Computed example of a mutant assay.
Amino acid sequence: MHRTILEVEHAAVQLQRPVHPGLVRELPFGQFDAPSEPSSHLHSHWISIQYHPAQCTAECADSRLEETAICNRYVSPAEREIEDFWHIGRANQPRWYDTPREVFPRAPGPFVRRSREDAGYSRELVVGQWGLIPWFAKTPKLTYSTNNARSEELEGKATLKDPWKRGQRCIIPAWTFDEPNWESGKNVWWRFRRADGQPWGLAGLWATWADKSTGEVHESYTMLTINADTHPLMRRMHKPDPKLSPDQQDKRSVIPLEPQDWDQWLAGTMADAKALLKLAPVEVFDAGPADAS
């Protein structure tokens, strides 16, 4: 069964430190592993953690955007690569890194949106937290995960409906993203690139949150997903639930945007944007085990 966001959060509580969902290993339902040390990839000791749903707070249960961890690890292009590929000027604050960088939930990451200062139309590069900070949050340091969001819930979810109706759509640049594959009976991380060698432009929403006590403004974003039960490639990702039929697994996929659709996504009407909420053709993907790439 899929590891839920609540389980990942529970791991962080038990270990008393943040745990990247991409580093949580899936085991039979009710338990999972997390690295015993907070290293990024080179970990040799794992701690088995029992998950007790009753111990999770109501706020965590009510506010999470994804019940299953979808994309929790990707590599962002360097700032100059984003500026060149998305035709953005260099007046970006704060600055992003000069080399490609791995991004995890709650870490800073870059995204592209319609410029807020341009009365016409242009794009701007913004750096914010990967994990949408909702308007009702009491602090920017969330105790629940909001890095993924179901596109089917854009109009009804409290966290999503205001950014969606306001047109706060963004594009998340990525050279690669990783997903777990369980076809061998154990988790094998797969890496996804574009077959044409270009970076991904993944559909997202952005938000700003202001601290009422200090006035500090925090930028944040979330990555949208869509049901992939019928997709030849993406339906193979994540651990299947043996109790459900193949067409009822609710496997998820990110939503890649093609270059010709960027302006429609960033500046179009809500109907224009809805038309782009779809699975990408399998031919777009170059995917395989991460260890072999």
Rank of each mutant, 00 (worst) to 15 (best):
H20P: 10
V282A: 14
D263Q: 13
E66W: 02
L160R: 00
P100W: 02
S293R: 04
I226S: 13
S245R: 06
A280M: 00
S63N: 08
S39D: 12
D263P: 14
R90N: 12
A69E: 03
S40N: 13
W209F: 11
K161I: 06
R193F: 05
F29P: 12
Q168K: 12
R25W: 06
G288D: 04
N227C: 15
Q93N: 09
P28Q: 03
A149E: 02
P199M: 12
D250R: 07
K274H: 14
R25P: 10
W190K: 05
P108H: 01
V126Q: 04
P18W: 01
R116W: 15
A207V: 01
C56W: 01
Q168M: 09
R90Q: 14
S213W: 04
P100D: 02
P180I: 00
W206V: 01
Q264M: 11
D241A: 07
R25H: 09
Q260F: 12
S48D: 13
L65Y: 00
A69M: 06
R113W: 03
I49W: 09
D263C: 10
I133S: 04
T269G: 15
W46A: 10
I172G: 08
Q50Y: 14
P100V: 00
E37G: 04
A273H: 12
N72Y: 08
R17T: 02
G185R: 04
T4Q: 06
A195D: 11
P28C: 03
E102W: 05
G185N: 09
P240Q: 04
L65E: 01
G215S: 05
G120T: 04
L27T: 06
M270P: 11
I88N: 01
V254I: 08
V8H: 05
E153W: 09
L160F: 04
N92V: 12
L23H: 11
E216N: 13
A12T: 00
E26Q: 07
M270T: 12
P53A: 07
K161M: 15
A271W: 01
S151F: 09
E155K: 13
D247Q: 03
P199Q: 05
H52K: 12
D241K: 03
G30M: 14
M234K: 04
P18N: 03
A228R: 02
E9N: 08
A292N: 05
P110K: 03
D272F: 10
I47R: 10
L160N: 01
R95F: 12
A12V: 00
W130G: 11
S184L: 14
W135F: 13
A228S: 07
K212A: 10
A275I: 03
I172N: 06
D118E: 13
Q260V: 10
V126S: 03
G89H: 07
